[in-house]
Design a protein around this nucleic acid. Structure first.
Lengths: 148, 148
DNA sequence: ATTGTTGCAAAGTGTTTGCACAAAC
DNA sequence: GTTTGTGCAAACACTTTGCAACAAT
């Protein structure tokens, strides 16, 4: 866990740089959101982000959270995923840590997984179809170990 | 197109049977929704269903549409898919016609595709994880041929 | 001084619920 | 006659927008 920190802070650093390059000014709310996203390892919803920031005494307005998430998504550093729970979730894009999600239909738990053959299958399809594939999202749903 | 009808009506027939078995009464609104879903080949949103039914002079209340879709989903004959467009889409589950979706980020077009290696990769993952996988949803997004 | 950033409240969109009436059994 | 199905309107949850105050450049 401790050794993950250096890798995780890479994302926050790179994101801050990208923001500066893109001409954004430094803003406290945005910095707080970036720092929070950087720490969490799996996807968070906007409400979870709001609650977590409030809990650490750096409350950020809901509208600002959505605006910031949208900016980061457009910058290409954040992935917005819809797991069929009626809300979007967001997670940092770390080139070396691409993964997908298992969603428990009972308790709504979200578990990450990755799989090389799956990625290869997606790449192969991307080349085959008459469509410029830019990204993909794979969700397996069912019952987690606890709910089964 | 004409020869597809016999196959498509199979779903409506089987669904009507399943509804009866499950103890549901026959209802005009539900029959209209089932008939409509049966005809369309790709996933529809609740609003599209409402509009299409109204256009054919068999208007069904919005609440009823959502209730019916939920029942069919629970019965296991309908698939609710979230393609990241902020709304759910629904399509009949036809065991022999399993497919996934390409979504155009520009024009929101939805195109179906299927791929055997992809399905095999998902099956393989399903066996590997500590999770009772019951279904999966794969969405590729990017730009369609027209928008590219 | 200018322009981007933030927070609040209001509005918007897709979905669900409460309730009265109609339809199926 | 009892129970389920349906439609309307209201409520709801998540997200977006308008606007005034604030902070970065």
């Amino acid at each position: 866990m401790a050794e993950a920190n250096s890798k995780e802070s890479q994302w926050a650093t790179a994101t801050t740089e990208r923001l500066a390059e893109a001409g954004f000014r430094r803003g406290g709310a945005r910095a707080a959101v970036v720092a929070l996203l950087d720490e969490q390892s799996c996807a968070l919803s906007a409400y979870e982000i709001e609650a977590l920031l409030a809990a650490r005494e750096r409350a950020v307005g809901r509208a600002s959270i959505y605006r910031i998430l949208e900016q980061l998504d457009h910058l290409g550093v954040l992935s917005k995923v819809e797991l069929g729970q009626g809300q979007a979730r967001y997670e940092p894009i770390r080139p070396d840590h691409h993964h997908h999600h298992l969603v428990c239909d009972s308790c709504e738990a979200v578990i990450a997984f990755d799989d090389a053959p799956l990625e290869r299958a997606v790449e192969s399809i991307s080349k085959r179809v008459d469509f410029a594939v830019e990204g993909h999202e794979i969700v397996l749903h069912g019952l987690c170990a606890d709910c089964r």
